[in-house]
Nucleic acid binder design. Sequence first.
DNA 1: ACTATTTGCGCAAACGATTGCGGATCTTTT
DNA 2: AAAAGATCCGCAATCGTTTGCGCAAATAGT
Lengths: 345, 345
Amino acid sequence: MGKRTTLRDIAANVGLSIATVSRALADHPDISAETKERIRDVAQAMSYIPNYRARYMRAKHSRLIALIVPEMNMFFVPSMISGINHVVQQNDYSLIVFQSDNAVIQERRLVEYCTHLSADGVLLVLSSETSDLQHLEVLKECGIPVVLLDRTMETAKYTTITIDDQEVGREAASYLIGHGHERIIGVFSDPRQRISALRLRGFRRGHSEHSIPLADSQIVRVPLIDELEQSLDKALAAHPDTTAVFTMTDELLVHTHYLLTKRGLRIPQDISLLGISDGQAPNFLYPNVTHLRHSGVEVGERTAHILIGMIEHNSDAMMDVRIRTTLVEMGSVEKRTRGAARKKR
Amino acid sequence: MGKRTTLRDIAANVGLSIATVSRALADHPDISAETKERIRDVAQAMSYIPNYRARYMRAKHSRLIALIVPEMNMFFVPSMISGINHVVQQNDYSLIVFQSDNAVIQERRLVEYCTHLSADGVLLVLSSETSDLQHLEVLKECGIPVVLLDRTMETAKYTTITIDDQEVGREAASYLIGHGHERIIGVFSDPRQRISALRLRGFRRGHSEHSIPLADSQIVRVPLIDELEQSLDKALAAHPDTTAVFTMTDELLVHTHYLLTKRGLRIPQDISLLGISDGQAPNFLYPNVTHLRHSGVEVGERTAHILIGMIEHNSDAMMDVRIRTTLVEMGSVEKRTRGAARKKR
DNA sequence: ACTATTTGCGCAAACGATTGCGGATCTTTT
DNA sequence: AAAAGATCCGCAATCGTTTGCGCAAATAGT
């Protein structure tokens, strides 16, 4: 309501020019100490609040970093945002968050919007619908650096931060097989998503490296979480000798855990469970579940650092960073003697 | 890098004034159809991108809405943000997210920062440290509307959106007692937080209304989640006749669920469990847990609507909105005959 | 044919800051 | 005492838009 006091107001009040006031407040050496003090006092008294937009408009940047996520998943995303936020704030930027609802059209709209806002950089978690990166060209044109994270695409024309999806899939299979599991059901999300395809490929490779066969019916693919129960039941029925289940995301993990428990299967006595997780869910599931951990916070932090580096050094060097994952053993995987069948309850 | 094309560039190109170009692009009736078309073509060809900051600077608003949360909890917060985001985007605002890390000093800094950015409105979830609302005065001075949500304070000098904490506590007790539970353990977070105190008060009232005694040792207070196990064990030991547990938040719920299961207690046969939740966690806990649901999305949406209303109608009317909660029965609460003791496994 | 009215466009101020350059004073040097 | 150097500050342009007002030309009204 009451117009904010501006430099002009202060200038009028102290009887000096706007330029002097500006410099005084910026502690410019050209201004005498007494003048500075006087101006600062008046500014204080008039409760002056600098207008960053005016400032940045002239400076040609916004100190705004945009983050576009497909959805506010309760897993991973919050911790990732948390990590991003920390380093963003630490570097005097602000984070502005958008949600594409997993729709390319929205994603495109938002990317455009970022240019309107003159965001200094964009962090993008691709929507599952996205199949090409055309709509990011406009950012290149504006010289706005982008980094893709978590889920990405082949054509790595952009800096990218992911976990090594294929490797983590391989490790998962390898770990379970190493613990004597030879019939494993793998639970994966929509196979059209690269993240899913890659983890699956690794999972397959892990099997073949150990010369363990992996039937296609051992792979559960659930584009929608609601389909999990049915698909899992089917796989379990097709493979009664299953001794372990692997889930490729947190969401899948908690629901699989639920379904197994509901079925009366005890973990790990009746069936072992292994997940990929940021480490939160495994802690409140009973028993705590062994998982390959990749910290959302770390992903967020590293990503933000990289983006800010690109912004500030005007670098357009393209990187492809892989976050490594660490195995956290929590007791949901049982060691089996080779070839032992699943115990009956 | 390559300077963005501006209105000036277009004007130079078509040989008309900046004003005309501006009006043409805005489809102003003063400009002839042919001119408009020509200008639009050129703008397109030069890949003109409007500079919203310049635009808004003149218009004296930013179409920025700030959200300050204490932390990125994996519960509630994401869905709330999701709800906020939807209506914010729908109304052509952008959401800019900050995190106070539950520190008043950070909160104050961020509030100030909002004024620097000339945010059009601020959404604030108070940090648990915050004990007075002095630091929000600066927003009032700048005429920036604020709405407090989820956790708030006595002195409701600000518009507030919460669930009726006391009522929900009462309902919880009432529901359990109605199902024959007479010895209930209540799990609460830091009692210094208003939200916690209120829910507890309601929980107490629920007991007294039914003339059921409630010993202080039945109340578990856990400022830090790590203390839950010990505190819960103690309460359980002190009250072996406990037949039900109530948890006041999602986080407490999942951990309590874990601890009960770990103890070998079957839900609901050995012990019943009731929570307050946004409905996600209860669905992947086995058995699904009965809870008093308050949708995070709904809270977010309503809050955003209210704030935008305040912004656009320049209203400083102060409201105190209570989101109502609905009981969702999912089978974690068993009906008991009055006075029956807890079954042994 | 002469006055209204409309049509189509440009001038310039404004939003709130920053900053290069130059201009007074005042002090110091020669 | 004149020149030189410091010190302190103001002028005005600039960032990219929007918009009130004015002005010329074209059209309409009588």
